[in-house]
């Protein structure tokens, strides 16, 4: 259901783990490392996470998505370590019987995980400085 990975995320492999015969829709969100933030040129990101709390919090978020929207499957993978521009930092896949629930559930999962998962991000800038985002 949830994994932290030190290696590049493989969207095709992740998608293949969502097998629900009752699913008529799959919505996937991929978050990528962008080359700027708030006007500053970014050269890369370092991600760090607390694995146990991530796993338990992700279980809660998936349970909430199922209760609120009736989604069937929730699968999330997050990268840790040093990432370059264009790399995938997070992959979220949500299946449901129909597209409305799949879109709503996927949106809920990514929004909540950004607010709640113990994952931290250090931005590396073109001028060689760094900053922990939000601290």
């Amino acid at each position: 259901m949830f994994e932290l990975s030190e290696r590049p995320l493989d969207g095709v492999k992740l998608r293949a783990t969502l097998t629900e015969p009752a699913a008529g829709a799959l919505v996937i969100f991929e978050g990528w490392v962008r080359n700027e933030n708030e006007g500053r040129p970014v050269t890369g990101l370092f991600y760090e996470a607390e694995p146990k709390l991530c796993a338990s919090e992700m279980e809660k978020i998936a349970g909430e998505a199922k209760a609120k929207f009736g989604v069937l499957g929730v699968r999330v993978a997050h990268r840790v370590g040093q990432l370059a521009i264009g790399e995938m930092a997070v992959w979220v896949g949500v299946t449901a019987g129909h597209r409305d629930a799949a879109f709503a559930g996927c949106r809920y999962v990514i929004d909540e995980l950004k607010k709640r998962l113990p994952v931290w991000k250090k931005e590396h800038y073109a001028d060689q400085t760094t900053r922990w985002v939000g601290m």
């Binding site: 998962l117 113990p118 601290m135």
Partner: peptide
């Protein structure tokens, strides 16, 4: 005890 600084996943 684990202290959790402001998170920034995704």
């Amino acid at each position: 005890v684990t202290f959790i600084p402001p998170v920034a996943g995704g």
